[in-house]
Design a protein around this nucleic acid. Sequence first.
DNA 1: TATAATAGATTCAGAATATGAGACAATATT
DNA 2: AATATTGTCTCATATTCTGAATCTATTATA
Lengths: 256, 256
Amino acid sequence: MTQSPSGAQSVLRAIRLLKMFTDAHPEWRLKDLARAVNMNKATIYRLLNALEHEGLLTRDKRTGAYRLGPEIIALGGRALRSNDLRSAGYGELEWLACAAGEAATLEILVENQVLILEEIPASHLLAPWQTIGTRHPAHATSTGKLLLAFLPAHERAARLRPPLQQLTKKTITDLEALEHQMALIRTQGYATAIEELEDGYVAVSAPIRNHDGEVVAAVSIGGPITRLNTERLPECINLVQQAGQRISERLGFREH
Amino acid sequence: MTQSPSGAQSVLRAIRLLKMFTDAHPEWRLKDLARAVNMNKATIYRLLNALEHEGLLTRDKRTGAYRLGPEIIALGGRALRSNDLRSAGYGELEWLACAAGEAATLEILVENQVLILEEIPASHLLAPWQTIGTRHPAHATSTGKLLLAFLPAHERAARLRPPLQQLTKKTITDLEALEHQMALIRTQGYATAIEELEDGYVAVSAPIRNHDGEVVAAVSIGGPITRLNTERLPECINLVQQAGQRISERLGFREH
DNA sequence: TATAATAGATTCAGAATATGAGACAATATT
DNA sequence: AATATTGTCTCATATTCTGAATCTATTATA
């Protein structure tokens, strides 16, 4: 990635040790760490000591094994509270809008609608905020179908009470057809909506996951079918997925 | 508290910086940090750089201000997941919140504060995680007083250094009065805090013991004094004690 | 618009600090 | 009881961190 900052060797080493505590390996003993990372036993000992002293690690009284400590929990809570979706997403959204050359949005599900939290217009000439706060019926949007797709079945059912509004000729209003498409969305990891919300309007979206891996929001690109045609769609899907992935990472999501 | 470990100055300094990011002050700029902590600007700069490079801090693109980063969220999640107390308590906590119709929490003592490890809100509409990781002064909470009560006297004294913060009119700040109440808590096996943390807020808690009988955490119910009135309190005490008992059993505690 | 002020980034010589080999202590294991 | 293993501690060394000072970018002020 970026070149490691100099003048902070021991800090970087300490952080490296912290990051060894994963879900797969939540507990470490000194000797195992010494084997796993390439550091001197005494060095690790001192670093672990410091981390423990500050509460970032705790030690099992009997076994002497280290685990992540209460201070990490406290810091994590604070990080969560101070890192909202919008600020995490903004930068990536800008990148996405620029890379795709289309409007990019960040949306969440509210009842049976999607709510636009943030938007970067295709042309930066247009004022933003124009659509922020706007809502659309979930079943007729790419983001809505995607967010519904990752909901537990019973919750999804509660939000998809027929009759579903037919907004265009292509709006999917049949529950079975929707369920079928959502299964596809789950496996593919993206959703599209081609003239389902509005004639001539196409959108693609990808999930945003939080630290628990839960899908909490969606990021999308949308534009006229003349530009977002079959040919360009795969590229857009790729871009939107990248953005979703990166925003998720900013929210603390780590794969597996 | 304990003497600072030597041979890790820069790590301790980096952690000190991390801990500056609180709920009250979630965002810091270099110059403000330099003013707040007593370190050289260049040193802080290097440490912040390292922390940012490793994802423990992020930087707002526009303002350049630092915030806690995604890696902290990820670590916090792992810390929480690797806490067996939390997994042991979750089910019982759900039961308790449901049975009492009030918010239920699982808390541990960290220095002179209580840390919320898990919370089930009274209304299931609210997202959890909201308060997880939050801390409160131990002497002003039911859980804190309870956990302190079961500590050896000298440890308790070390964590109750006057002056104790007067959060409401009813907060007990007198050491003798506190000691007296704690003796009562030990014999009764539960604690209450009636408008001691916040006006109108009442909580009751019971101990959680591990396999060798040590009190390692507390479970509590809390709510508005209008609902948790004198009349309902005994019932709540009973419920919270039941939950504490059952969680303890899950941790291997057996009475005899 | 020019100028000043401020915050942030970078440099570097010197010295404090982290390092790691090894010795020792405390536990486990045989 | 003897041995092996893991954890803790010490200390001389030089590597790494430090912080004063400088430079650059950005923002505020005249």
